[in-house]
Structures are given as C-alpha cells and as structure tokens.
C-alpha cells in the first residue's frame, strides 16, 4: 500500500478525457481541487464540498463520482472524464449537450457539468429510462435555476434518439 506523509507531495498521473495528465498532490488534496487548480480543468465546479449538491460530479473509470469526496491520490492511474471531454476539442456539442441547449436545461450553468456527467453514465446503463428513473438519477444534483423540467426533457429525448439510432443501425444490417 502506498504511504505518503501528510505534507509530502505525490505525483498523480491519470487519464483526463483520454489524455495522460499528471500533477502534484498532497495526501489531502481533493480530486476536485486537483482537477481545477493543478490540471486547469475548471469545467468541474465545486458547490458544497460535502457531496450533496453534485456539481463536481465526474466519471472515474466511467462511473459518476463526486470529485469533492475523493482524494486526488485515489484517482492515480485511473481514467477521469469531465465535462470538457463530452464534445470533441473543436467539434460540435454531443447529443446530450445539444439537447440541454434545446430544452433550456441550464441557466447559470454552474450545476450543469455534474449533471451532464451523471446523465452520461446513466444513459450508458439505461437505454429505455422512464421519467421516474430520470428524476431519481437527477435527485443526486441540486439545480437552483431551472426547476429541472428542461433537464428531464433533454435526457428523455436523448434516450429516445439513441434508441431510434440503434434501431436504424439494426435495420441497416
């Protein structure tokens, strides 16, 4: 087991949005602080630092996780995906991002990064979610601007679009 003294700096290397990145972290450095201030990935936002608001949600090895409840050293050697990786570097918005824009699913946008990450994880697992399932998934996030309506609609629409696409792909074969 890795042992690091309290004030020692440890080199953490992870795969951020498909690219290997590394930086220094002390044992108590939060993953959220490491991503934002050490790696400069400020798309991940910090809203409460006690795991309730969900704004800092990223995907660690594909699983939605609170970056404020994880230490940077725990992410060493793992794959971390953040909002910055959802669309290609200079490419168009992903289907999920475009649906958020269409449905006015964001206003200030501060909670949005975390919500997008939870939705990305969720839609990868649930191909035919009901509104109740979507609302249950979203209940891990606090949004103060939208009243959630646009978010729920956007997620349901993307799920339906992806089902159609899969159907078309099957029909083509």
């Amino acid at each position: 087991m890795l042992k690091i003294e309290a004030n020692d700096s440890h080199r953490v290397t992870l795969t951020l949005n498909g690219r290997e990145r590394s930086g220094n972290a002390r044992p108590r450095t939060l993953l959220s602080d490491f991503l934002r201030h050490e790696l400069g990935a400020t798309g991940t936002h910090v809203g409460c630092e006690h795991g309730v608001c969900g704004a800092c949600t990223v995907r660690v090895d594909g699983v939605a996780s609170r970056a404020c409840l994880m230490l940077a050293v725990q992410a060493d050697g793992r794959r971390v995906d953040t909002v910055e990786g959802l669309a290609g570097d200079d490419g168009p918005l992903s289907d999920l991002q475009a649906a958020f824009r269409r449905h006015h699913a964001l206003q200030c946008g501060f909670c949005t990064a975390g919500i997008l990450n939870s939705c990305a994880d969720f839609l990868g697992r649930e191909r035919d979610p009901s509104e109740a399932q979507v609302r249950d998934m979203l209940s891990g996030h606090l949004c103060r601007c939208t009243g959630y309506t646009g978010i729920v609609r956007a997620v349901l629409e993307v799920a339906a679009q992806r089902r159609e696409q899969r159907q078309e792909e099957r029909d083509d074969v």
Partner: peptide, 14 residues
C-alpha cells in the same frame, strides 16, 4: 449555452 455546456464558462473561481 455552448460554452457553459463544454465546461468553458468563466466563473469567478476560474
């Protein structure tokens, strides 16, 4: 929205 959805917003702490 485009910038905000990409994580490219510029908030106070950014």
């Amino acid at each position: 929205d485009d910038a905000l959805l990409r994580g490219a917003g510029r908030y106070g702490d950014d």
